[in-house]
């Protein structure tokens, strides 16, 4: 039951309005016929057409999606390894440094991460001739910060789970790697999925780190958007924003609905199991 006073409810309404009004306005003005973003000139979808005919937008979007896909896959593997190590390995040499390197990227200002990675790539380029700046340097940079977010998600999920299942499997003679793949990984799979999605969206969204590490040739979608909006408002960018917001909203609500359904199913299963147990006990 809700126990909120009118005061708290009012503050909440103001807060949510503040969070959502800008996005609502972005969407409304994407259907504006006028070239001036804040002057309403009638309903039109012409900016969407213009957007889809803009080869620069399409190219940079494809590049961004490719980078985000590779980033998400690699970040899930590395982040899951780091998360398991931090929760299940107890104390080991260099643990403080390791956990520091996992939590620092979460708050590190992007300009610092971007500049320092560029220095590394340039030093490597001078010494070894690789990597050429572009797709791979951006991807490596994105993997580095997003694996930290995945590790934190995995850590939270593993910490809330007791070790008895894994221990039981070991006692029954399961080899350590088999236990890892058959017991631990399925248990943290939901965390891995949300980690993958988070890494994907963070990579897709990043402007600053990509600007530092991209080099002259590569242009990601945020870099394209930034170069356009620096000089002012543009209705085709509103159309692009609407497409992104819609995709995300649909995705988040489907994910939320699936999780809710899974939760309910689990509760039903648990109740069934509890009933079976009582029946067994009565029979005995």
């Amino acid at each position: 039951m809700s126990k909120n006073s009118k005061f708290v409810t009012t503050l909440m309404c103001i807060g949510f309005t503040f969070l959502y009004i800008p996005m609502v306005l972005l969407v409304i003005y994407s259907f504006n016929d006028s070239r001036f973003v804040t002057v309403w000139g009638g309903f039109s979808t012409k900016w969407y057409g213009e957007l889809l005919n803009n080869q620069l937008v399409i190219d940079s979007a494809i590049l961004s999606l490719q980078i985000a896909f590779v980033t998400a896959c690699a970040a899930v593997v590395l982040g899951t390894m780091a998360g398991i190590a931090l929760v299940r390995f107890g104390k080991f040499k260099g643990r403080t440094l390791f956990s520091g390197m996992i939590s620092a990227p979460l708050v590190m200002p992007e300009v610092i991460t971007g500049l320092s990675l560029l220095m590394l790539f340039i030093a490597l380029e001078n010494a070894l001739g690789i990597p050429e700046r572009g797709f791979w340097t951006i991807t490596i940079a994105h993997i580095t910060f997003s694996m930290a977010f995945v590790a934190v998600i995995i850590q939270a999920r593993l910490a809330g789970m007791d070790e008895s299942l894994e221990e039981a499997a070991m006692d029954l003679g399961g080899k350590p790697l088999r236990v890892l793949f058959d017991i631990t990984l399925p248990l943290i799979a939901p965390g891995m999925i949300s980690g993958w999605l988070l890494a994907f969206t963070m990579s897709l969204d990043d402007l600053v780190i990509a600007s530092f590490t991209a080099g002259p040739g590569a242009n990601t979608l945020p870099m394209y958007i930034f170069s356009k909006v620096k000089t002012g408002l543009r209705p085709d960018i509103n159309a692009l924003a609407t497409l992104i917001i819609l995709t995300v909203a649909i995705g988040v609500f489907i994910a939320g609905w699936l999780m809710l359904r899974q939760d309910k199913q689990r509760k039903v299963d648990e109740q069934m199991a509890a009933m079976e147990t009582t029946k067994d006990e009565q029979a005995a």
Binding site: L26, T38, P222, I237, V248
Partner: peptide, 15 residues
Amino acid sequence: FWTSFLLRVYAWMGI
């Protein structure tokens, strides 16, 4: 969190 940070800042340029 999941929508573009850049575009949400851009929205305020208009407002």
